[in-house]
């Protein structure tokens, strides 16, 4: 499979002045490849470097040393900055602070307007993007009247309208209630499955991470675990050591396995858990 994003031996620290030389690296030697159409979740606690990494995918931050390539373009290449940002869109955590205009459709159009696209096409793209996130009927509303989940979907639509190949979401659900989280995650899943958009989801909710094709776990600026959700969540011990959440279903099976019961190594949701338990309880 073709690598869409390549992170090669990236180190990053804030500031380049002399005095900050002893400050520690926020990213400490990251190597990561992301394929086209993949859905990757990056997890880790606050300060693990996951948000800093997210901002490397579209040249908001540049590596202190090392390189990031997006579709073969080095993110340090100034000339092609807009090409990179057209390919990789970024959605931030706070739903209020990333909406620019006072009307939903105007905001979604903002990116396309910056790209100098013809008005007719902008309208088409804006409507398609709003349809894709299920916010079409709200196109004339003002953002402050929307719920958190709706605002976040508008922000996603603003990126989708630019027709990116990849969308990076930096803890998009951290400030939302369960319903808003559900709305955002199912929207993201839909974009990935139906439109084939590559998704990089930064989150600390494990129930979101289990939906991904691949989970990358960061700690102190390093990738410490990488694999399918099944592989990653089988490492309950390691997850707990790094104080990450383990779904209750996973943890229960893990504990029972510890007592010698014959159970599968990983279950990710309640259905799998009940199925597994039935095997031993029926006897």
């Amino acid at each position: 499979m073709k690598n869409f994003i390549e992170v090669r031996n990236v180190f990053f620290k804030y500031g380049e002045s002399e005095e900050s030389s002893e400050e520690k690296y926020v990213l400490d030697g990251i190597n990561l490849n992301i394929h086209k159409g993949e859905f990757v979740a990056a997890v880790g606690h606050n300060g693990s470097g996951k948000s800093t990494l997210a901002k490397h995918f579209n040249s908001i931050y540049l590596p202190t040393t090392g390189d990031v390539y997006v579709d073969g373009i080095n993110t340090k290449d100034d000339e092609r900055l807009f090409d990179i940002r057209k390919k990789v869109g970024l959605v931030l955590q706070n739903p209020d602070n990333q909406i620019v205009a006072g009307i939903v459709e105007d905001d979604v159009a903002f990116g396309c307007e910056n790209l100098g696209i013809a008005p007719r096409e902008i309208r088409e793209r804006v409507y398609n993007a709003l349809e894709a996130v299920g916010m079409y009927e709200y196109r004339k509303h003002s953002p402050e009247k929307l719920s958190g989940g709706q605002k976040q979907r508008v922000a996603i639509a603003g990126i989708i309208a630019m027709e990116p190949e990849c969308i990076v979401l930096d803890e998009p659900t951290a400030m939302l209630d369960p319903q808003g989280r559900q709305e955002v995650i199912s929207t993201v899943m839909k974009l990935n499955r139906e439109l084939g958009i590559t998704v990089i989801l930064i989150t600390h909710y494990m129930e979101e991470a289990v939906l991904a094709d691949r989970v990358v776990m960061l700690n102190s600026g390093k990738i410490i675990l990488e694999g399918t959700p099944k592989e990653v969540f089988s490492q309950v011990e390691l997850l707990k050591k790094h104080r990450l959440d383990v779904p209750q279903a996973t943890e229960l099976i893990y504990q029972l396995r510890g007592c010698g019961y014959d159970l599968p190594p990983t279950v990710l949701n309640e259905e799998e858990c009940v199925d597994a338990l039935m095997q031993i309880l029926k006897k």
Binding site: A249, E271, V274, M278, L281
Partner: peptide
């Protein structure tokens, strides 16, 4: 979730 699992059982 844990309560739900017990109810499903």
């Amino acid at each position: 979730q844990i309560t739900k699992i017990m109810r499903m059982l």
